[in-house]
Each structure stands twice: as structure tokens, then as C-alpha cells.
Design a protein around this nucleic acid. Sequence first.
DNA 1: AGATTTTGCACAAACGTTTGTACAAATTTA
DNA 2: TAAATTTGTACAAACGTTTGTGCAAAATCT
Lengths: 336, 336
Amino acid sequence: MQKASITDIAEITGLSITTVSRVLNGKAEQYRIGKKSQQKIEAVAKELNYVPNHQAANLRSGKSGTIALIIPSLKNPYFANIASKINAEIRKYGYITIIGDSDENEDIEEMQLQQFMSRNIEGLIIAPCGKSHEQIEQIFNQGLPIVCIDRYFENLDIPYVATDNYDGAYGATKYLIENGHTEITCIQGVQNSTPNKMRVKGFTDALNNFNITNYNIVGDDFTVQNGYLETKLLLQQNKRPTAIFALSNTIAMGAISAMKDENVKIPDDISLITFDDHPFLDYLATPLSCIAQPVNDISKMAVKFLFARINKEESQIDQVLLKPSFKFKESIRRIN
Amino acid sequence: MQKASITDIAEITGLSITTVSRVLNGKAEQYRIGKKSQQKIEAVAKELNYVPNHQAANLRSGKSGTIALIIPSLKNPYFANIASKINAEIRKYGYITIIGDSDENEDIEEMQLQQFMSRNIEGLIIAPCGKSHEQIEQIFNQGLPIVCIDRYFENLDIPYVATDNYDGAYGATKYLIENGHTEITCIQGVQNSTPNKMRVKGFTDALNNFNITNYNIVGDDFTVQNGYLETKLLLQQNKRPTAIFALSNTIAMGAISAMKDENVKIPDDISLITFDDHPFLDYLATPLSCIAQPVNDISKMAVKFLFARINKEESQIDQVLLKPSFKFKESIRRIN
DNA sequence: AGATTTTGCACAAACGTTTGTACAAATTTA
DNA sequence: TAAATTTGTACAAACGTTTGTGCAAAATCT
């Protein structure tokens, strides 16, 4: 069973492919195609089970109807959620998403981007994993609409949507302080990533504003292992912190694991709070407090910004930080 | 900055587009293009930053270099992992993956499939969410290579790769029985899905083989809510089971939540085991025993089967069930 | 009834490739 | 040195659409 083309329909109906194309694209009105012809065409199209060939159409029109989404890893539930949402949003515009998984590897990211470019993507949403922005900047300057999510480049014009990480870290730290914690250790992730930098800044600013100088920042990766090792080290010190602030839920898992090893109770011995929400957090031994990122809003807004660019709408603001929300639970103990 | 085409290169080098095309496709040898011409073409291509236009190439060659992957939901970490792995595997073949998220909705699944078809996909990997297989079967019969994962149709020829759910359920149930449990309730998911049916069968067969007739199967959805509600009901009965077998980790989460509500301790009061592994399971109040599906193997094998079909290799077997592995942890108490 | 407008449609080029075939020029062979 | 072979390349069609334009026929107006 061969696929039917517009040409087949033209032959059967005795009309030209031009007419068929126009009817099938809903431009019948515009080009004043007669009612009868329309009906005939639609009937035959249905009968032949006609499916348009996007490739051909796109070749001619110069469009691909494809948006690329590049994220560090689908295995990370935070990004999986974003991908799911973005995928759905993009479909609403009649576009298709191709997803690239850079695995936190800058080289892979670059290769994927290159590959996607040859697919004539019309837009790109990316959570850049690297510090370098040359390639992205170049592509952006060539005119490809791009929106960064989660991570972004502060000094460039590239639109972005991300969580206000500073605000989240500041609020969480403030909450800890208000609950009497003065000895807080922050376990951070990849140091030169924007979110990490902002979180650390929120953390230190909050402490400074409360005149607390006795804090500690350790770690260097958004992984379970990093959380585990750093916590292990912490627990071996003479003076343990009263609270740990994990900058991702992977780090928090590592911390929990290490504390379990050492039989340290949360929150009795040490309080814990983490960035990133996750359905499972409520089912842990102690429900884990977190700073929840507005995943849905980020996704929606990123797609919105992207299509504003694609449709060349006069974009006003397209660099925004969205406020996170706080979920304080039993994992934080009130001291005194 | 306009994109350079093969034609531009032809003009600059003074060679024909035929020659350029052949060189750029690595067919220089085959068509005996001279060394100098090759070098000239490659130099110019690099200089112009030439990126091939897949659409045009694919239009002509009838290929799209695109594989569609349709799964129920990226939000489900089980499928997110599969998607991540499959995406990576497919890229190794130089193909691109477009991902569809059916949200467990048969209509959406159908629409997406339709949409993907018009993109001239060369293959499809799908975890079908519906019971009906008409559309998929039709497409398969039209010659599109398809591989089902996770869920499949028993009586059709469509290749599939899935977990041996029967084996998993049987093994888990046997383990419970061997630990002295005789009153086990199974909370199931979507009843007419293949995995669910096989799991239930494994469960009942195990019990029957041990001459245990006192069991209970409840529930009807792979959701947290289902797990929660069914467990709530269970706990209100006079006689509570000694163990609960959750057929997905979402169900297990709901069960844990309900037990927490009622202050029922795991495993002291009730033991719990679930299908599907997840990194978080170890960090729960009580590390949760699970039947882990071989996600990586499923993904790899599915892609392998798919490309065997695409490349028209004589495929021997392409319907397989892979054995799960068991992770028995503290959530199961030994009785007596 | 002739002029004007509207209606309905078709022609043909173009999008950027791939590919079967053809054919000179250069080289080798007899 | 003529014939045969090899080498290097080009022509042109095709893939399935979209779209600017053109042009009869029908309808309306004067």
C-alpha cells in the first residue's frame, strides 16, 4: 500500500495539485475554491488515507516545524518533568520536539546541537551544561530563536526562564536561621553553573544579613555521590553543623545516606533542606523540606518566549526569573 | 548570513552539484572523484560552514532519519529512564528520536502517532497505553518497523521487548510466602494492560502452588491515589493482610502514605514489596523491596530489533521477555 | 449587449538534495 | 596507432509540496 500524495488526489479528482494543496491547507476560502471541489478533495483524501509529507512541505516552505530541546539528562526527574511539559506545550503549536540529552557533557551538547541544526530546527530550548557559550551565541546571532532554561548566561541577550535561585536559597537559609540554626553547611553542585552561583550567593547573603559568619560551603557536583562524601566528611569533624543545605535533591539523597550510615537522625541531630521538589520527598523517613522550582511555569513561559521570537512578535521582556516556593516540613528542627 | 547549500559549493569550486554531493556523502571513491576535487570541495564546505539540509536529502531519498518513541509519560521515572536510554541508542545509528507523551490517553496516543506518521518516521518504539491495537497493527502491516516495549500484544507478530512480569511477580510472591506470609494483598494497576495481567497471574500462580487460597487483589490504576485509597480500605478491615504487593512504585507510594496516616509500621505491621526500582527507594523510612526491571537491556534490545527490521535483516526472534532482578530489603518481615 | 467584476482554478517554478546514466578525456593495451 | 579501458565528472529527473501569478468562464452591472 503506497502512500497517497497530493498528486494522486489531484489525478483522481481531476483537479490540479495546486487546488488540492490549497484545500488541504485550509486556504480554500482565501483562494476561492468551489464548495464542490473542496468536498471532492476532502472525500478522496480521506479515502486514500492521505497523510501530508512534512518533509516536502517544509522543504518548500523553508520551515521544519521542529523545535529542539537540549537538557543535561532525562534521568534527572527535574528535567524529565520539564521535558514532558515542554513537549506538550510545543505540540500545541503544531510543532514537534526533538530531545537531546547532553549527559552533562559539553562535547555531546555541541555535537547534538550541530546535528539538530542540520534538521533545520526553527527554535531551540536549552539548559546549557557548559560554561562556554560560543556556539550557542553564534547560532543565536545567526537568527535562530533560542530560550535558555534553568541555566543561562547573564551577560548575553539570549532569552531565559529560570528559577530565582537567589531568592530560593535566601529564603531557605533565612528559615533555618529563624529556627535557631547558626551553624549551617551548604553542599553545592557544579560551581560555575549559574544556578549554583546564585544559590550560594543567596545562602551567604542571608547569613551575612543575620551577622552569621560561621558557615561552610563544600562539594562540587550535583550528584548523590558528592552529597554522600561531603556529608561523611562533615560528620567526622569535631563540631558538626546543626543544619545542612543541599543544593539539589541528588545531593540531599547522598547526605541522607551518609547520615544513615552514621546513625545521625534528621532532624533531631541535623536538620536538612534541599533544592528541587520530588514526589518521593514526602515518603522519606523524615519528609524532606525543599525549595520547589516552578517547573510548569518555567516550561510554559519558555515555550511562549520561543514562539514569540519565532513569530517575530515584538518581545518586550524575555529574561525572567520565577520565584520558587517553599515546602518546609519535619526535616527542620527548631533549636532552643 | 544565509545557509550555504551544495549548490553554492558547486559554483565556487566550479564542479557540479552531483560531484559535490558525492564527495560530501563519502561516495567519492565509489564514483572515482579525483583527489584534488575532493579536497577543494571539503575545503569550501568547511569554509562556508556547510550544514546539509536533511529535509531535502530525505525527501529525495525517501528516508527521514527519524524514529518515533511513544510512551505513556515522561513524568514516570521508569519511562523517563527508558526514553533517555533509547534516545542515546538511536543516536548511535545516526537517527533522531521524536518523543511522544501519550499521558496514558489512547486518543492522544493515536493523534501523536498520526502526526508522527506524516513526518515519515522510519520506525516506531511504543509502549502502547491502550487496549486497542488496530491503528498500530495497521501501520505495522503497512510495513513500518515497530517494536513494543513494556506493554505488548500477545497475539500479534509485532516485535516486543518487555520484562518477564510473570516471573517477577511469581518470585516476589514466593519470597513473601517463604518468609511466612500467607495473607497477601495485591494492589494492581490498569487491569487490561499486559504487564498487569502477567503480574497478577504470577502472583496467583505462586499462591496456588503453595496452596494458599486466602488472597486479595484490589485496585485498578498505576497511580499514587489508587495505592492510597486501596490501602486505606484495607486497613479498615478487621483482618489486615500481613503483606502488600504493589504492582508499581506509584501504587507503593500511595500505600506508604496511607499506612503512615494510620500509623501502620513497615515491616513490623505489614510488609511491602513493589514493582519497579527507583533510586529513592533506599532512602525511604524503610528501604523498600522491589522487582527491578532491566531498563537498559530493554532499551538496547528494542533499538536493536528496530534497526534489524529497518535494515531488513533476517530477524530470528524479536519477541522477548527479560528477567527482572529482585532487591529484597528491610520492608519485608520474616514471620514466625 | 458590452463592459466590468468575480469566481474558480491551473501553470510552473522553486526548495536542496540524490542518483541512474552518459560521456568526454586520459590512460592503457594490443 | 587504433582500440579498449579507466578516470573524472556532469546532466537531468525526481522526491512532494507551496505559492506568485495568470487566465478563462461565469456572474453582475450599466
